[in-house]
């Protein structure tokens, strides 16, 4: 078994263990049980509640997506304190700006990642200002960090991950297993066949069908990319 207990299969709405940090602060024996509304409220229903201001939806959105937002911020900024500040701002700003979120136009998670992108970019801008002030004072030259592109890439990856997680639950179990190995373990077809003790032809067939479904959804996301950038 590669991925630990599979009790979440088919029972969650597009959770790719997003709500459950692995290797984080929780030890492995406090494995995820049912700790939230994943099984009861789908992402679409949560998005509707969030946009109409139901206060429980903020807590649930935070529980589902704060690990993703925080991970993007941490990877982009490097400083845990900065990442926490950004995470806080994303959910506070996102809550106050919820009228700008249209559930019909995109996923709540994608929108929150878009907010993250902006808040991180603001943080870099203020770092630049501080750095320039410091340079003037000390006459030191610092290498430009130039992470803005990186945060864009991280945001893209995060939104892709959300979509992939959503598609995963629509795949048949073996298709999902094969794609997890291909994407998350970066295994090749022969390696997957060996790992699962599955004929290579079967692996090929599973991969091809799953990719076709993934492609449809990711292309659809590209077509609807607007919502991720229109947070002002």
């Amino acid at each position: 078994m590669f991925f630990g207990p599979r009790s979440d299969f088919g029972c969650r709405h597009s959770r790719l263990r997003f709500g459950q940090p692995r290797g984080g602060t929780l030890s492995s024996d406090t494995a995820p049980a049912i700790t939230g509304l994943d099984d009861l409220v789908g992402d679409d229903a949560l998005a509707e509640a969030f946009s109409s201001g139901d206060t429980w939806a903020l807590g649930e959105a935070y529980r589902r997506w704060a690990p993703l937002v925080h991970t993007v911020a941490l990877r982009a900024l490097g400083e845990p304190a900065d990442a926490e500040d950004v995470t806080q701002q994303v959910f506070v700003k996102g809550w106050h700006a919820r009228h700008g979120f249209d559930p019909a136009r995109g996923r709540l998670a994608s929108w929150l990642v878009g907010v993250t992108r902006h808040v991180v970019a603001d943080r870099f801008a203020s770092r630049d200002r501080e750095r320039r002030l410091g340079e003037r004072l000390s006459s030191q030259s610092g290498a430009r960090v130039g992470k803005e592109q990186t945060v864009d890439q991280l945001a893209e990856q995060a939104v892709d991950a959300v979509v992939i997680a959503e598609v995963m639950v629509q795949l048949s179990p073996p298709q999902r297993q094969v794609i997890e190995l291909a994407f998350f373990q970066s295994l090749t077809h022969p390696q997957i066949a060996a790992a699962l003790d599955m004929p290579l032809g079967t692996v090929k067939s599973h991969v091809r069908r799953a990719l076709a479904t993934l492609r449809d959804h990711l292309d659809d996301r590209e077509a609807r990319r607007g919502p991720i950038k229109d947070m002002s």
């Binding site: 692995r22 984080g24 994407f183 998350f184 990711l218």
Partner: peptide, 30 residues
């Protein structure tokens, strides 16, 4: 794209510390 996304989330997300939620709730007024 799939592998890049997997690289971001596949090795486990880093959750913020538990106390951060109180700051969020205070900031949002809930």
């Amino acid at each position: 794209r799939g592998r890049a996304a997997g690289e971001l989330v596949g090795t486990g997300l880093t959750a913020p510390p538990p106390e951060l939620w109180a700051r969020v709730a205070a900031g949002a007024g809930v």
